[in-house]
Design a protein around this nucleic acid. Sequence first.
RNA 1: GGCCCCGUAGUUCAACGGACAGAAUAGAAGUUUCCUAAACUUUAGAUACAGGUUCGAUUCCUGUCGGGGCUACCA
Length: 607
Amino acid sequence: MDMKIEEKIAAVVAESIWQVSGQQIDPASIVLQKTRKDFAGDLTLVVFPFVKALKRSPEQTAEFLGETLVKRIIEVEGYNVVKGFLNMVLTSGFWLEFLAGEAGNDRFGYAGEEQGPHKTGNEKKPVVVEFSSPNTNKPLHLGHIRNNLFGYAVSLLLERTGNKVVKVNLVNDRGIHICKSMLAWMKFGRGETPESTGKKGDKLVGDYYVIFEIKLRRQVAVLMAEKGLSEEEARKEAPLMQEAQSLLRRWEARDPEVLTVWKQMNAWVYEGFNATYKRMGVAFDKTYYESDTYLLGREIVLEGLREGLFYKKEDGSVWAGLSEHNLNEKLLLRTDGTSVYMTQDIGTAQLRYDDFLPRKMIYVVGNEQNHHFNVLKKVLGKLGKPYADAIQHLSYGMVELPQGRMKSREGTVVDADDLMDEMVATAQKTTEELGKTQHFSEVEKKDLYHVIGMGALKYFILKVDPQKNMLFKPEESIDFNGNTGPFIQYTHARICSVLRKAVPERLKQALNSLDGMSLNEKEKQLLKSLYDFPDVVLEAATELSPAKVANYVYEVAREFNQFYHEYSILNEPDRGISDFRLLLSQLTATTIRNGMALLSIDVPERM
RNA sequence: GGCCCCGUAGUUCAACGGACAGAAUAGAAGUUUCCUAAACUUUAGAUACAGGUUCGAUUCCUGUCGGGGCUACCA
């Protein structure tokens, strides 16, 4: 493929300024953007940065560059100048050539094998993306949904732009939290199992975590009343908490009785998690368990201690001093020798590095842990680990409810399974009300409701800039009209309906009809938007922001609907125009499908 | 207290330092003998406040106010 039109223009601009003024301009100062809808033109160059070099007014600068560009680049057929903005008009031929070139390309927007990053040296090393990272003491909730969808979409974005990606999950299966669930089950569970209760495994274990907290709270209340302790002191001294800590020590000592219970309860949880992941449509290439990595972490910490990088306090606890980074000292091993989160993460990072020799390790973890990852990188740096700088904490914002953060203690947690159930149920209800599925089989219906319900949920989550906190209103947040997943899915289904009605041969032959075609405004606007797709994907991948894709695809769908409303495709009497519109519709469908696929959202052919 | 993030229509979200700040939803008014009305059209409505840098600031800097997070021998 030859040089992109944007590159040609930039090159001519830089060259002509150099010829006239003898000045090299900064390539970054050449700002080319889509012409805004209220002005005539296709591409706009902002000329303010060049007025000094050319010693002319903005208008004169724009005129000069406009004339030069029209002369030197055949695709530029005209221009107009508004203030300091040079609006260029590209030929219809240019747009039609683009359409002809991409028509029928199912991978439109994705990097071809040859287009990926240069497969040499560092670039061929994989990127490891960690996401999900659940604890085994409670079921997945709305926060995990954002994490999973975000992490999975980022992985897809990197993959489709030519990177080798390894998706990993890190299950936090050890530590005080799971001991709490275990203890409650051992003391109060009377041998309950998922089978005996009919509960999903992760739900059952989560229930015992709640039971622990309830019983603990009672003990704390008693201690506060009888001994006059503060809540904090009472929590520490409460027998249940003591027992949980003792359980953790027995676990780390590999007490067989404890290990048996632990394995059993975790197995229940994994079964539950896997069902949820499957439904959500996310998958991993490898799953790490912290029970497998914390010992390595402890080893590394102890080695650091021997080398004098860390220090031990009188009570036996081990710390990293980080005052050189203006950070407080960080605990690495507790007084009783057990590991903390940081210890595990040190081991996990090492293992992951050894496994994949990645050029980058991305951790998709909420922004509440910004500090933690900052410290992790510093500690690994102190240890002289080569991968300390390869770690990137891809931090994202919280999902909030109208009453604020989700709090498991206050029972405001939105359960992932429940939410997905609701979405699918709403999809079914809405679809039935519209009477659209009379001719669907039962299997097709079930499939469609799942696709629409999940599409609504996923789009709602992913369209928001990941850096920002987002608000979820249980009763009204997820709509099926407007800027939503189902709107986009519907647009796709509409296009498929048209394409089905066309004779298949027509699409192949249609390419011959394009010569000399002139485009109306809506057609051109839609085609211009489609032209942007590959750049949007690249930008989204660079910024690790699936939201860019989501908002873009919506824009395309909206433009198609406007075009569709105003013009006929199959009923257009002029065969050439009809053919062109078919190709335009087909590429729109491909763009929607490929864009939504980056968000792990399926698009139905009928709905 | 210290450090970090965020303040855009009633509400939920957009906007590489670029033109008159875009959508959706809720509100008002319309469109279907025609390829799927989950659509389309019209209408009204916003950059928290005060300075600064710049030809140009929602965007960058400073301060004020408001919201959130972190600052654990929790994860």
